[in-house]
Structures are given as structure tokens and as C-alpha cells.
């Protein structure tokens, strides 16, 4: 039986950001995509040192400045005002993307329109012919960062699964995503399938499966009480 879900189901956006932040190791160099990934910066656990890279030329990006202290020449890739931490550095765009394309960024967190069970990502184009397409740095990030995490709502606004067997929207990169964080679950891409890592507290496995366009693998060692009870 299909269980109707919506964006209020499971984890909030801040919960998702907190889950991602908890998985970023001490000393990591991390790039955050525009949208939901941006809030990861607010949830790095105390005592952990993580350096944020923004592709428009800043390593050591800090949080948004207080109102009235915005500098129009100190922004992030989403063109929002940011600050620079003590020890930050500025560099030009080719150097910034050499950090990405040269495999120097440990983790990149991106949003998604679709993710396939083999790790293909679609997040740049809805495929509309007359709308100007915009790609930004997404294709560079998926090709170059060591690990790609996706942060997304589990379903589209109209309730369609974003996690699918094969993407139908234009690809950003193929076999690039390693882990997906949604409001309903955390899933690894492993051996060509979505493998459950953790279910959100008020979501059961059947609801997760009903809202996913691919078969979810539940490893026997899955540690969530609800998954184990099925």
C-alpha cells in the first residue's frame, strides 16, 4: 500500500544538514553547492576543523556576516554574502577549479533533481528547450571532488521520486554520487543500488520504498530499529 508523503515527512532541512555535517571528518576540505547544502556550514560539530572552499575563489569561507557588514566583493558561489575565516586565502578561478578538477577537494555536497541507483546525477537542467540552460560549476565538481554527497528532498514538489533506477533528465555526471541524504533516509550508492544507511525516525521502510523509484537494499546490519524490525 502506498503511503502518501510530503516534504514535512522525516528530517527537516536543518536535520539533513546536521546529518551531513556529522559525516565530514576533521581536517576535510569541503565544497558546498547552492541551496540546501549551504546550511551544512552551520552544523559542523564543535572541535572539528573543516575548511570550506567556494569555487569563486575563496578557501576558508566563513558564515554570513552580520546585517550591515556585507561586502559586495566577498561572496560565495551562490552570490550570497559570506565572510573569510582567519587563515583564509583568495585565488583566481582557474586556480580554484584546479583544486576541484585536480582532486584536492575531499567532499562536495550538491543538490539534485534526480539521482540514479548507479550514482548518476541530474541537477542542472530540466531539459526545457526555450529556457536558458545554466550549469555553473556542477559538472566540474562531480568530475573532480573525491566524494560527492547529495542533499535533497526525497521527492519532487509534485511527489515524484527523485531517487530512480535511471535518470531521465540531462546528466551532470555519471556514476559520481556516493551518498544521498534526504528527509526520509540516508542511502549509500553501492554495487549499483541504493543501500539503506539510516531511516528518519518517523519513516518506515515501506514508506521509503514506496517513495523511491528503485529497489532499496537493506543490509542485515542496518542499525535503525524500524528497518531491522521489518
Amino acid at each position: 500500500m502506498t503511503t502518501v508523503t510530503n516534504m514535512a515527512t522525516g528530517w527537516s532541512r536543518q536535520d539533513i544538514a546536521r546529518k551531513i555535517a556529522a559525516d565530514i571528518p576533521d581536517g576535510a576540505f569541503v565544497n558546498l553547492g547552492i541551496g540546501m547544502p549551504e546550511s551544512v556550514v552551520n552544523h559542523i560539530p564543535q572541535g572539528r576543523e573543516v575548511i570550506f572552499h567556494t569555487e569563486n575563489g575563496l578557501l576558508g569561507m566563513g558564515p554570513a556576516p552580520p546585517a550591515g557588514e556585507e561586502d559586495p566583493e566577498l561572496i560565495n558561489a551562490g552570490k550570497r554574502h559570506v565572510t573569510a575565516i582567519t587563515g583564509a586565502s583568495f585565488f583566481h578561478h582557474a586556480d580554484s577549479f584546479a583544486m576541484i578538477r585536480g582532486g584536492h577537494i575531499d567532499i562536495c555536497v550538491l543538490g539534485a533533481m534526480q539521482v540514479s541507483q548507479t550514482g548518476d546525477l541530474a541537477n542542472w537542467s530540466m531539459g526545457e528547450a526555450d529556457a536558458a540552460p545554466a550549469v555553473g560549476g556542477a559538472m566540474d565538481l562531480v568530475a573532480g571532488a573525491k566524494q560527492i554527497f547529495v542533499a535533497t528532498q526525497h521527492c519532487t514538489k509534485s511527489g515524484k521520486p527523485k531517487l530512480v533506477e535511471s535518470i531521465t533528465l540531462p546528466a551532470t555526471g555519471l556514476a559520481v554520487v556516493s551518498r544521498v541524504y534526504t528527509n526520509m533516509a540516508i542511502l549509500d550508492i553501492r554495487n549499483g543500488a541504493f543501500e539503506l544507511v539510516e531511516l528518519a525516525p518517523d519513516v518506515d521502510l515501506q514508506t521509503l520504498q514506496d517513495n523511491t523509484g528503485a529497489t532499496i537494499i537493506v543490509p542485515v546490519h542496518a542499525e535503525t530499529g524500524k528497518a531491522a524490525s521489518l
Partner: peptide, 24 residues
């Protein structure tokens, strides 16, 4: 730009950001 593009009145060469920087 989006208005002119949707009316087919301007050409666009879309390049990934890092590729654009590296091409230059």
C-alpha cells in the same frame, strides 16, 4: 538575457565553469 534567449535573439555557448576558466 533569458528573455532574448527564449525569443532566439541571442546565441549562447554554455561552458562548465571550470572548463571556462581553464579554456581562458
Amino acid at each position: 538575457f533569458p528573455d532574448l534567449y527564449s525569443k532566439n535573439k541571442i546565441e549562447l555557448e554554455l561552458v562548465p565553469q571550470g572548463t571556462l576558466a581553464e579554456r581562458i
